[in-house]
Write a protein that binds this DNA or RNA. Structure first.
Ligand SMILES: [Zn+2]
Ligand SMILES: [Zn+2]
Ligand SMILES: [Zn+2]
Ligand SMILES: [Zn+2]
Lengths: 141, 141
DNA sequence: ACCATATGTGTAATAACATTACGCACGCAA
DNA sequence: TTGCGTGCGTAATGTTATTACACATATGGT
């Protein structure tokens, strides 16, 4: 039915809608924001959003930001392992930068080994101010 | 009463109650769980809990676990900087291990510098299985 | 004493986020 | 055909967090 976009893996209609809403906007969005945006497309209930998000996260196309209760489209869906990614979240402008740092990933694995912890997923969210916002707030006007 | 009092900084009654409830139990607790436990002590509204938690977090006595929407007493309140701590959260038994790893902290700072990000707080939550649970599930009985 | 400020308290109402339960539909393979 | 896995739609409910308002107490400056 739908022309499948290059990176889509046969998404269903609802999954396509949610993914489209996430990629069509900068910054993270909450489930209820997504719902509001997609009411025009026929979505009516939170569960429709949450089900689509769950699948998209499974597919590695979307990430959940725990400290914001919000969701973002993955910045580099080509890479396979999204279990260790970091997010730099600007508290000023709200933009999120997805960071894939190999040393950080291996460092976290080492920490887990040190503590005899069987690591399944690493949640790393850096809060602060992005470079742009720091620049504009440093020299206003 | 509590030997923990030694490190208290003149907590108010509500703050003392919430802190006591957090230290008196293993594992993280949600705000509403705390409220239920403290009804007998006269607390009635969520806001009373959230206000106390906010202050306790400011004081470095309590941490918020973003991926659980729950709170834990700090494991080592003596150390000053709690902006970069990691938590190993066992998805099996629910216990949380607070990890202070200096290499991890400096690594995160480096990542921030690389991305021109002014870092204020690092949220690191490791999800998986703790050593005890891995052992018991490996050899049942 | 008077005032302003900062901090804490108590209550009610509401907002924001997320899940459970139920029934139906479709594609696919035993 | 039957059973199974997956997705859909709706309603209801559960969980987490905040806003608004009014009052109380301590502190420091005039
Ligand atoms: Zn990603
Ligand atoms: Zn910014
Ligand atoms: Zn701590
Ligand atoms: Zn465990």
């Amino acid at each position: 039915m739908n022309q499948i976009r290059s990176m889509d893996k046969r998404l269903t209609k609802n999954q396509e809608l949610v993914f489209g809403a996430l990629t069509g906007t900068e910054g993270p969005q909450s489930a209820y924001t997504l719902l509001d945006r997609l009411r025009a497309d026929g979505l009516r209930a939170p569960l429709q959003i949450y089900r689509a998000l769950e699948k998209l996260i499974d597919l590695g196309l979307v990430h959940r930001l725990e400290s914001l209760n919000a969701f973002v489209a993955c910045s580099h869906p080509s890479c396979s392992d999204h279990s260790t990614v970091a997010f730099a979240i600007c508290d000023d402008c709200g933009l999120v930068n997805e960071v894939a740092d190999e040393r950080l990933a291996s460092n976290l694995k080492e920490v887990a080994v040190d503590y005899r912890f069987s690591l399944k997923q690493s949640i790393v969210e850096l809060r602060g101010t992005c470079g742009d916002c720091a620049a504009t707030s440093a020299k206003p006007q």
